[in-house]
Write a protein that binds this DNA or RNA. Structure first.
Length: 530
RNA sequence: GCGGAAGUAGCUCAGUGGUAGAGCGCCUCCUUGCCAAGGAGGAGGUCGCGAGUUCGAACCUCGUCUUCCGCUCCA
């Protein structure tokens, strides 16, 4: 079905406790949202799925959690103090807004000018306001005295905490290139533009990884480096399709144009999603070269280098950065999971078809009716499941209504206790319950003693540290079909054919790089979770 | 930040100067034995907030906050 419009999702998100406008009792606050009981679970599940794919299941990436408020020099070294500032001018006549530097750089062609040579509005020649400096970093101060010496920034991105810790991590973890450092945390940007729901907010959570590799032999033609960038682009695209379950037809890759590239980047590819308002960025995979390490080394005076045994030289690693938006992914997951289908009576059934591992609530325990005979057994089943999965118990109103409630929050399995379970009219119960599937609405009857095993078929096992995939999902995964990956969720072929494994671009580190390739491309990654 | 539109119950909305409303949802009781059944009852709104006009304002005026659309911006 086509993607729902944004209002449908915003309304559902609030009605069911996923996302609330922030501080609603005080009239709200622009570009800020609060995550409700289901939203926090959904967010946590996405974050954990990322961490699992990026850190736990890999042997070449380690984690980090750096301070948010830190030495402001970090943001000088990163270039944000200088480059995150836009001089803005407005046309007094038509109210259009421009960046003063864009006018001077000829982005609008030859700009009309007044007698003093100052630029005028390129559209109607109106007078422009004086430029106002606008830095998108939030400032605060540390300690009781509010002066410039105590000034600090809230981080506008996640990457810098990783760069400043490069040597610490590399040495304590005894890492050889290539390796990565991953981090998920909140970032802050003083956006002047209202966002669309949680697509653009003042604070947002990012999931970033910096992948450090040997510098190319030829800075100008870093073919191997760009090939590694391409590998990561494909790896990350597959994550959205295979792990999170986003429809491939609503995902695309977009390479940044030269003019669009950031000050540090040798190339950036965005993974975009088809939002209700058009394509929008979900994740950017940037080839950051050695910009950050070099810049921090120069400013701090500390060498941020890696000693290459083979050549006997200290080198500054080059970096690939897959930077994903966690809160954006959450918006996409809600949009993409939303389905409406007619039921038998022609009524609308709203279902959030989350992947089981992403679903905020995994199981609902529902006695067939609110009857004292059913309750003790139902509570016993609830107590059995609660330590294993996020579980809800509901006995109010009709069973059909409760199924619909669970459909609307995307609960994959409902466990129903009926009179056959507990027995009636003097007949003994069979101690069996039914499991009702969210998507097919089919039911199977299983003994309570086998309930956990039966649910593990459908839901990733909570006992295994969050679980990666459920048994049924793993069985569904075709490895490689005729040399091409097929999509495990049955939605067709992936967008790209995996290239033949090529000779390692980093001959000195062939083994490590090879393991990257095999892991990301080979069939192993499909069956890993079993 | 500019222009336009909007803000009334949890959600969707009606209500054009004179008693605050509907449907759905939610809660309780009864009923109900597998996909949003039915009955009875109930909670919940100083109509975004503040000021003004008026005998009287959800309604008119101004300000303000928030949201949406369009610009603009987006390392």
């Amino acid at each position: 079905m086509p993607a729902p419009d944004l209002e449908t999702i915003v309304s559902l998100a609030k009605r069911r406790g996923f996302v609330f406008p922030s501080a609603e009792i005080y009239g709200g606050f622009a570009n800020a949202y609060d995550y409700g009981p289901l939203g926090v679970e959904l967010k946590r599940n996405i974050r954990e799925a990322w961490w699992r794919s990026m850190v736990m299941e890999r042997d070449d990436v380690v984690g980090l959690d750096a301070a948010l408020i830190t030495n402001p020099q970090v943001w000088v070294g990163s270039g944000h103090v200088a480059n995150f500032t836009d001089p803005l001018v407005d046309c007094k006549r038509c109210q259009r807004r421009f960046r003063a530097d864009h006018l001077e750089e000829g982005m609008y062609g030859e700009v009309p000018r007044d007698a003093q040579g100052r630029p005028l509005c390129p559209f109607d020649g109106g007078e422009l306001t004086e430029p106002r400096q606008f830095n998108m970093m939030f400032r605060t101060q540390v300690g009781p005295v509010a002066d410039e010496a105590n000034m600090a920034y809230l981080p506008p991105e996640t990457a810098q905490g990783i760069f400043v810790n490069f040597v610490n991590v590399q040495q304590t973890m005894r890492r050889k290139l290539p390796f990565g450092i991953a981090q998920t945390r909140v970032s802050f940007r003083n956006e002047i533009t209202p966002g669309r729901f949680i697509f653009r907010t003042l604070e947002f959570e990012q999931m970033e990884m910096e992948y450090f590799c040997m510098p190319p032999k030829d800075r100008e033609k870093p073919a191997e480096y760009l090939a590694l960038h391409r590998q990561w682009v494909e790896e990350r695209l597959r994550w959205y399709i295979d792990v999170i379950g986003i429809a491939p037809e609503r995902l695309r890759l977009r390479d940044h144009e030269k003019e669009e590239l950031s000050h540090y980047s040798a190339g950036t590819t965005d993974i975009e999603y088809l939002f209700p308002w058009g394509w929008g960025e979900l994740e950017g995979i940037a080839a950051r070269t050695d910009f950050d390490l070099r810049s921090h080394a120069e400013l701090s005076g500390q060498p941020l280098t890696y000693f290459d045994e083979e050549s006997g030289e200290h080198v500054i690693p080059w970096v690939i950065e897959p930077a994903a938006g966690l809160t954006r992914t959450l918006a996409v997951v809600l949009l993409d999971a939303y389905t409406e289908e007619p039921d038998e009576k022609g009524e609308k059934r709203i279902v959030l078809k989350f992947r089981p591992r992403i679903a905020p609530v995994k199981v609902a325990v529902l006695p067939l009716s609110k009857n004292d005979a059913l309750r003790p057994t139902a509570r016993r089943v609830y107590d059995l499941l609660r330590p294993l999965w996020m579980t809800q118990y509901d006995e109010t109103q009709s069973i059909g209504r409760r199924y619909r409630r669970q459909d609307e929050i995307g609960t994959p399995c409902c466990v129903t206790i009926d009179f056959q379970t507990v027995g009636e009219n003097g007949q003994p119960g069979d101690d069996c319950v039914t499991i009702r599937d969210r998507d097919t609405q089919e039911q199977v009857r299983v003994p309570i003693s086998g309930l956990v095993a039966a649910l593990e078929e459908r839901i990733p096992a909570a006992r295994r540290a969050g679980g990666s995939a459920c048994a049924r999902e793993i069985r569904k995964r075709p490895a490689v079909v005729a040399g091409r990956f097929a999509c495990p969720n049955g939605r067709g072929q992936l967008l790209r054919t995996p290239a033949r494994r090529q000779a390692s671009p980093y001959s000195a580190r062939a083994r490590t790089t090879g393991s990257f390739a095999a892991r990301s491309r080979g069939p192993k990654c499909w069956v890993r979770a079993s």
